[in-house]
């Protein structure tokens, strides 16, 4: 679903991502962990076509992101670490805007908006301007916007930040259901307990380089993910 090969991205002299390769297959929830400034967000932004990279390739569903960015972007949804949405729109207008961009028919979008907004308990606030939303409400709206076009691949940067426990639980269920239907999820997180319970595969990045990748069992063995992570960080 998502293949990242030898990705390198530099900011001036600094290599934010250094020769990183990852493969995310359909049905997988893939966790991406690392300390602050390790290169997680940069990798995710490169994978969704927001940032241009210096070397390497990104392919989504077999299509090269550099050659055919629009086709690739039609297959994916992205939720950034800080949901800076269009504050001047209401929640429902934002969702309709996203649905228009993805060409989702009126009936289908109406049904999906109803389903996900009810699920995340945001229906009553959809007519409110986004500027009046709390961080958690914006995050919920970003989640609905990501799910509205039923993408094959969902890429999320710290998706649980700001969500209340119930919404976090619901999002985890939505992630699992999405992958059970054949979709794939690639997300970064600092919450290692969540990653440990939720992810099929995990990758650990340090100073832009991939230092460990594999299934959860391969990465952590008999230890906890936290122990493995701290051990690798200390090296």
């Amino acid at each position: 679903m998502l293949n990242i090969e030898h990705l390198t991205k530099t900011y001036g002299e600094k290599k934010a991502v250094d020769d990183l390769s990852l493969h995310i297959r359909p049905g997988e929830i893939f966790g991406f962990i690392g300390h602050n400034g390790a290169g997680k967000s940069t990798t995710l932004k490169c994978a969704v076509g927001i940032l241009h990279f210096d070397a390497g390739t990104v392919t989504i569903g077999g299509k090269n992101l550099a050659d055919d960015p629009l086709s690739c972007k039609r297959e994916l949804a992205y939720i950034p670490d800080n949901p800076d949405l269009y504050d001047f729109m209401s929640g429902i207008k934002y969702l309709n805007f996203i649905a228009d961009i993805f060409g989702i028919g009126a009936d289908v979008r109406q049904e999906r908006i109803r389903h996900y907004a009810d699920l995340l308990e945001l229906t009553g606030d959809l007519a409110q301007p986004i500027s009046a939303y709390s961080h958690g409400m914006k995050q919920k709206l970003a989640v609905i916007a990501a799910w509205i076009h039923d993408p094959k691949l969902i890429i999320m940067d710290e998706p649980f930040v700001g969500l209340d426990p119930k919404a976090s639980h619901l999002l985890k269920e939505m992630m699992r259901q999405h992958c059970d239907k054949g979709g794939a999820i690639f997300f970064s997180t600092h919450v290692l307990e969540v990653a440990e319970k939720l992810c099929d595969k995990v990758a650990i990045i340090k100073q832009g380089k991939l230092i460990k990748v594999g299934t959860m069992e391969e990465v952590k063995g008999d230890d906890s993910l936290e122990e493995v992570f701290l051990e690798l960080e200390a090296e």
Binding site: I101, Q110, R114, G124, D125
Partner: peptide
């Protein structure tokens, strides 16, 4: 608080959506 009333949205092309935005 503005009350949300569900109604069918008018579909827009990507250009139309960007222009409306």
């Amino acid at each position: 608080k503005a009350r949300y009333v569900e109604k069918q949205a008018r579909e827009n092309s990507p250009f139309g959506a960007m222009l409306t935005k």
